[in-house]
Design a protein around this nucleic acid. Sequence first.
DNA 1: CAGTATCCCATCCGATACTG
DNA 2: CAGTATCGGATGGGATACTG
Lengths: 127, 127
Amino acid sequence: MVTKQLLQGLPEDADLRRADSLAREIFSDVANKWALLIIETLGDETLRFSALRDGVEGISHKMLTQNLRMLERNGLVERKVHPTVPPRVEYTLTEAGRGLRATVDGMCEWTHRHLGHIEASRRRFDA
Amino acid sequence: MVTKQLLQGLPEDADLRRADSLAREIFSDVANKWALLIIETLGDETLRFSALRDGVEGISHKMLTQNLRMLERNGLVERKVHPTVPPRVEYTLTEAGRGLRATVDGMCEWTHRHLGHIEASRRRFDA
DNA sequence: CAGTATCCCATCCGATACTG
DNA sequence: CAGTATCGGATGGGATACTG
């Protein structure tokens, strides 16, 4: 990955490799469809579990909780539980999460800019 | 996704839904670990299959071909076969591919900027 | 309402073997 | 060298049922 350039000069090999493997791990966590769609849906809002479930179309209960836990663990979303009954749980992007969101925005924008090109390319390829 | 904003005004519902489902499909193709790592590794270079295999560390023969086909189909990489023996096949990002690459660069940079924050958050969470 | 647990199928992915 | 095919294990992911 880009580690070499960014950490260049300071650490010894062992640290470098550790950082790189951590980067890989994070990348694997984050570079997945559901995680990115959740981040994109959350945006600047604070949403409840059910709202998020409705917002990320096609996601199952299970995948939503699973990915939310993962994002919380990595410090990308904050989970706030209101001790009421019935329970009310709200999710918000953290500072770091909003940073990642900016790049995901770019990906979405890119997707829509290239819809036509991609569709055409697919037709060509499938022939 | 962002379709509504970008296509706003012109098409009727059917087209809108078609574009949106296409966008989802593309997003699912592209928002996966291996595809993004391949794009990132390719960068501005033209690489042979074997070079790519070495560059994207940890990727298997199978996943590489599979993802390269997918990227080619979507018009993100160009595949050039030199009819020599042994064969020589070279891969390059297309214009569209380079556009996506820019956003992936952003993701990598983000990852490295937040390594520390994430590691700390994980330790907190795992306790 | 939010969450966990379970079952089960589909897809991912690595390993290996084979071809031009 | 680049590619396809196949097998089998691991993981992803949906459906359902159950809890505080």
